[in-house]
Amino acid sequence: MVFEVPVEKWASAVNTVTLGATAAEGGTRASTVTVGGSTTLPFLHFEGEIPNRPVIAMEVLDMEPQSWPETLSAPFDGVLNDPAAWAKKCVEEYGAEMICLRLLSAHPDSLNTGPEEAAAAVKKVLGAVGVPLIIWGCGQADKDNEIMPRASEAAAGENCLLGSAEQDNYKTITAACLADGHKLITAAPIDINIQKQVNILVTEMGLDAGRIVMFQATGGLGYGMEYAYSIMERTRLAALGGDKMLSMPLLAVVGPEAWKAKEAKTLEADAPQWGAEKERGVLWEAMTATCFLHGGTDILVMWHPKAVEMVRTTIDGLMKK
């Protein structure tokens, strides 16, 4: 008996979003990145088109990270206090397709830096690398409303991805995005209903739905990964079914979540049964990222270069028809 693979016929496609602007497009980026466009679930090449592969953005903080384990900081030895040098290393040595600049120092509980410092950090990183940028605030709403307009302005015309607009705080960042020609991350932690609502709110401000990437929070392997995964999967199904307010590409922040897990960072000396931490942490991040690829993630934000390399190889394999 011949087995026939069941093929689902979908009504719609995920939006296609391009990030970064070259000189011809009014920016200074050497390369651009295009994600989305799928007409099927992840990697089902027999069922539909997957015109663009998922991409990996490596994350750079605008201040020296606190309490990173040795495994994680070793590959960035000497650059962790300089976001430009850090970004350059990610691109030139570790092949990052994008840089995600996290303006963490602005947080009131951190260094409480202001808009000037944020703009300066953005300019330094833009000058150091030619790949497209994700520029993400510190996560504290009031502070982000203070720094993000300046950070956005410092990168005007570069077609960056700004993060993030949320249900209770979306106006300032959306306005900045509109003014400076960027794309926008809309965020709703593990809640597809609120995610859809945020998308409506920002589009009502005049931002085209084709300029949005969605972030639904990320759980590390063993720490709620499956919640985020199933939300992403449901979102993708809605997109393919024709829901235009859930048709945007998806982003997952893997690095910070994976490395929060004790399984990733506990030293072998403290847990000999778990084996060498040098491999364990990298695998934890790579496994988390790989799971999200299957959930439909288009942009992975990652930390460890070895994990990045492993996931890139995985993507190569998954994209083979």
Binding site: I192, N193, I194, K196, Q197, E204, R234, K244, M245
Partner: peptide, 15 residues
């Protein structure tokens, strides 16, 4: 048949 959000009527029309 549609994912809920507070503005689901608007979302439907926009789709």
């Amino acid at each position: 048949k549609q994912v809920y959000c507070d503005d689901y009527l608007k979302a439907y029309l926009s789709s």
